[in-house]
Write a protein that binds this DNA or RNA. Structure first.
Lengths: 101, 101
DNA sequence: GAGCCATTTCGTCATTTAGCTAAATATCTA
DNA sequence: TAGATATTTAGCTAAATGACGAAATGGCTC
């Protein structure tokens, strides 16, 4: 959970997710759209992947990253429910916040 | 926008928001629920306030913090729209351009 | 195997963050 | 005014983050 919100905390990583909304894209192709080095972008990909927000598929010498929308949706809707947005009827069903920071 | 996601990146700050869902609470009362010092909590409050996620009302020697749900809702729903969750199909239609190989 | 391309890992650096204690700043009450 | 309480600011340290260039790795295609 914390891993997901940590991943969302960087503007480049949020933009990567928005970019991938349209479909899969290779690491290099994504990296070309941002004003930082490829190694830096690789680090961002790693963080997004560790959070389960993207998936990397090795294809023909390059890696195609795709958005894993369900993880994102679950995290955001879950948190919204806990603070009382959206489905927020009011009560907090299973609080399952096992953050062992 | 980045300020909001930065604020949401820390588990204590997310828990504070959840706590305030039930209603206003004084800084000290909130701080007592977390295993860090009051100055540290004060820093968290400052960050949440700077992001517009909570409001502080000075009342009788203590400060009552309340959740500013609209900021949170706007940010989360806005981002969800941009990545294609929820209102999904509405904004920025998905032009399946990735498959045009 | 050699070369090439795409991507990641490594080593380093600067900046930011989160935490602490101690001190300062209100604000209420007597 | 003095004292008590509540909260923040100041100053510090340790750890995490984000960035870079250089080097290493993994797959193709000769």
């Amino acid at each position: 959970m914390s891993e997901i919100f940590d991943a969302l905390a960087h503007p480049i990583r949020r933009e990567v997710l928005e970019l991938l909304k349209r479909g899969g894209m290779s690491a290099g192709e994504i990296a070309d759209r941002f004003p930082v080095s490829k190694p830096t972008m690789s680090g961002h990909f790693a963080k997004l992947k560790a959070a389960g927000l993207i998936r990397g598929e090795n294809r023909g010498g390059s890696i195609i990253y795709t958005l894993n929308l369900s993880t994102l949706e679950e995290a955001l809707l879950g948190f919204m429910g806990r603070v009382g947005i959206g489905s927020g009827a009011g009560e907090t069903p299973p609080t399952a916040e096992g953050e062992t920071t």
